[in-house]
Design a protein around this nucleic acid. Structure first.
Length: 259
DNA sequence: ATTGTGGCCTGCCCGC
DNA sequence: TGCGGGCAGGCCACAA
């Protein structure tokens, strides 16, 4: 599903639209517009020029003009982009590779082509001028100081804090399991109980895992993801993985080496 | 404020 | 072969 990794791939694809003018905006699904009406969004965006793309965590931001509105795009679990008719990502875990025209929830038409937001399950959405301050620092560039702040004085499980977008932006369920598996930390540890060495180890694995999966091209290409199933064995030591709900999400981890 | 829970949404997979 | 019930998780509203 789209996590930081996929959204960054989307952003790079959407970046080719920079410099183009938005000629038309198609919003067939009012539910997909999270703030304001489709008409308001259309009126704000038409005739604007796309000047840049940004990403904070899983939120894609499309800048327009100098003082123009910012279009925020969230992809939920099954959302993807098509830029000028092409998909930067072919395979998306938990989503469908089929192409149903009804799944196009938003479309920006430009002179040379278009940007389509395709989302079968409608868990994503578009929003004008999203509140960027609600998101914590991006996981791809997270510093040790930022991680320390994110984990401070918390009795919540470590994994729940990693998933909290207000504390750290960009980590989703698969990425969290992958990071904790590499860092050899149990997901149900109290977040504030990590010592200095463990926090440093975690910070390095957050950045390293993000970098590695970006190179591989997907959050589903981690080293432990294939073992997240009944009967799955730890790729490091062969122990049966344990499954539980932590932070409200299905969690798989190795009880032997993750402590 | 912090933390946990349930619901939204719907394609897909499994068992009958 | 068709059918129905779970399941997946990002995000948000809500409760304790």
């Amino acid at each position: 599903m789209p996590e930081l990794i996929e959204v960054e791939q989307y952003r790079r694809a959407v970046d080719v639209l920079v410099g183009r003018q938005i000629d038309d905006v198609v919003l067939p699904d009012p539910w997909f517009v999270k703030r304001g009406s489709p008409e308001e969004l259309r009126a704000s965006l038409i005739r604007r020029q796309i000047t840049g793309t940004r990403r904070i965590g899983k939120l894609l931001l499309i800048d327009t003009d100098v003082d123009g509105p910012v279009l925020g795009v969230r992809f939920g679990m099954t959302g993807l982009v098509e830029v000028d008719g092409a998909r930067p990502i072919g395979e998306l875990l938990y989503s469908s590779i089929r192409r149903d025209p009804a799944w196009v929830r938003a479309e920006l038409r430009t002179g040379g082509g278009s940007l389509a937001i395709v989302d079968p399950r409608r868990l994503g959405g578009v929003e004008l001028d999203p509140d960027e301050t609600r998101l914590g620092p991006d996981a791809a560039t997270l510093t040790l100081g930022q991680l320390t702040t994110a984990l401070a004085s918390s009795h919540a499980p470590l994994k729940a804090r990693l998933l909290d977008q207000a504390r750290i932006a960009g980590i989703g369920n698969l990425l969290a399991d992958e990071i904790l598996w590499h860092a050899a930390l149990a997901p149900d540890r109290a977040a504030a109980d990590l010592d200095d060495r463990e926090r440093r180890r975690l910070q390095r694995w957050i950045r390293a895992t993000v970098a590695t999966l970006l190179e591989r091209g997907g959050s589903h290409l981690g080293d432990v993801i294939d073992a997240r199933r009944p009967g799955g064995l730890c790729p490091r030591d062969g122990s049966p993985l344990r499954r539980a709900t932590i932070g409200g999400r299905t969690t798989w981890w190795c009880p032997r080496h993750q402590r």
